[in-house]
Design a protein around this nucleic acid. Structure first.
Lengths: 333, 333
DNA sequence: CTGTTAGCGCATTCAG
DNA sequence: CTGAATGCGCTAACAG
């Protein structure tokens, strides 16, 4: 495990000064073609890699980006991470991924850790509704998906339209009594989906006694349990359900089926996120698909601009969504 | 966006020298109780965080760990990342996650990037069969899951037993003609699962004309297509299939069903990995569950030991697996 | 086009 | 128990 070469040693070997080596590495220009080639050759030959600590110390740049996510196991966030990773790699940034696991204390530890590591910027998908102020963080931050109170720049899906499309699909499929079955923590995306849902309902002339709003924790088991209780206590007084994610849809469908109701026969269901499972379960779930690549790219793009001191034209970047129709809202059956 | 305080400023404020501040921060001892308290108080008050670049430059340690994974969207790897992240956070390390996306060129770029960033060690789940030699990497490496030729320390599931258990389950369910349907790239875990499969078959007295080995790319569509071809060209000459991951099992099952065969009625299927979908699809898939937390913890543990210069007793750490029985191998139906 | 040099923030001798 | 001084590897003036 021989220790790495320094720029000094490379300079000695190449017969130039460190300044020239540094210039070539960062292609600052101001050297001859031959010099450039020779330096590159030697760097290659000796497998030299610059010491990021040293250059970071000097420039006060770490060339690294922090990415905070609430749940790396969630396909939606995993996809965003993948896209961010790819984007930043291209720009020669390293990505520090922090999985806060929806835990506020963990999130804080991670954040401190990131700051200590001198990240140049942060992509922040927070589990909290309130977040440190920009000046407390001290580096550019782009929020994604969830919008905390003091978010400056936010990239998120068009959740209002998502909720609208999902609900419209139920209405078009003939549902007369529709339930909004949402993550009870009511984070901003869920609130917006609810707004879109209301809008569709109003437009279609639904009265208050034909629309219902229910909250649940957003996982499979909680949703199943919640729907069981509803069916047990009040019976099946609805014929369409819009859940704010696909795992909830799975739970709702299973509860419905175990009570003898057919989906989509008696009740139609629309989910959100288009996770892989939604395509392989029975019935396949109609869902709202978010454009994760676009979300990631726009967020990364905005962050890089902020890091380079360029101004951001739009502080609130909204990415279109699309409805993916499947069996859980089909008319036949 | 005020710039951060340096240790010098803290020293001035506290009325001590930087040396003392440094000692307190790293609790090196050699200072009075009062000094310690005062320093801590001031650090707290001024929200001072040490500059990791500077201390890294000085100590040649970055307190960061590189993690290379072939596919962050894969639940199995995502779970490992989550556990690693948690483990290292506890030990105040930051984790640099690199998603090589099963792409060798990307993997190399990421690796160079990691080295530049001075990571103290790497957890390496490689997409390749051959990997840089330890002395070329220059920091401790623990390989996980896949074992390249020159791996020094490797943590992986007991794949032989996994293959054995899966196949045994098919045999116990009454299958007489069994197909091993494996990832055609034949990486080490798949080879071992095949070995376990063979072992179970041999033990049960299967002759060569009752066991079949088929290769496919490891995704849903490829597996489905491959199985379609088999059924079309040769018919259904088997009554049990062991696929080396769950997505392949899904593809195989769908191909079987669309050709009119029942699962588990005509053909029983066992998958591998226990991804969430395997529990929600129809039929629910019998599969082999890997202990991802244990894999992650043991790998992280070994890496930290290597980083601290302690010797590793075991170079080849094997984690037990378990069979998760579900509908795709059930006798009834 | 190229070289010399100061200093980024910190940990660590060595002196006291 | 504490402080002064050195240098880690690199970039960016500045000088030639």
């Amino acid at each position: 495990m021989e220790s790495r070469l320094s720029i000094n040693q490379i300079a000695d070997i190449a017969g130039f000064s460190v300044a020239t080596i540094s210039r070539v590495i960062n292609n600052r220009g101001g050297y001859s073609k031959e010099t450039e080639e020779k330096v590159h050759r030697i760097i290659e030959e000796y497998n030299y890699t610059p010491n990021a600590n040293a250059s970071g110390l000097r420039t006060n740049r770490s060339h690294s980006i922090g990415v905070m996510v609430p749940d790396i196991m969630n396909e939606f966030f995993a996809k965003i991470i993948r896209e961010l990773d790819l984007y930043f790699l291209k720009h020669r940034y390293v990505v520090l991924i922090c999985d806060s696991n929806e835990d506020s204390a963990l999130e804080n530890m991670h954040l401190r850790n990131l700051l200590t590591k001198n990240v140049d910027g942060i992509i922040y998908i927070s589990g909290k509704n309130e977040v440190l102020k920009p000046e407390q963080i001290g580096v550019p931050v782009v929020y994604v998906d969830r919008s905390p109170k003091n978010a400056e720049v936010l990239v998120h899906s068009d959740n209002v339209t998502g909720g609208y499309l999902a609900t419209k699909e139920l209405i078009d499929a003939g549902c007369k009594k529709i339930m909004f079955f949402g993550d009870e923590r009511l984070r901003s995306p869920v609130r917006r989906r609810r707004d879109g849902c209301r809008k569709a309902l109003r437009e279609a002339g639904f009265k208050n006694d034909k629309m219902f709003f229910v909250g649940s924790l957003p996982d499979y088991e909680s949703s199943r349990q919640r729907m069981r209780e509803i069916l047990h206590d009040e019976g099946c007084y609805f014929d369409g359900v819009f859940t704010t994610n696909d795992m909830m849809a799975l739970g709702v469908i299973d509860a419905l089926r175990e009570s003898g109701y057919s989906v989509p026969g008696d009740v139609k269901v629309v989910g959100y996120d288009n996770i892989p499972t939604s395509e392989f379960c029975v019935p396949k779930i109609t869902t709202v698909t978010q454009d994760t690549k676009e979300i990631a790219d726009r967020a990364a793009d905005a962050l890089l601009k902020m890091i380079h001191g360029e101004s951001i034209e739009k502080k609130d970047i909204i990415i279109p969504v699309a409805l993916t129709k499947r069996e859980s809202t089909s008319l036949t059956k």
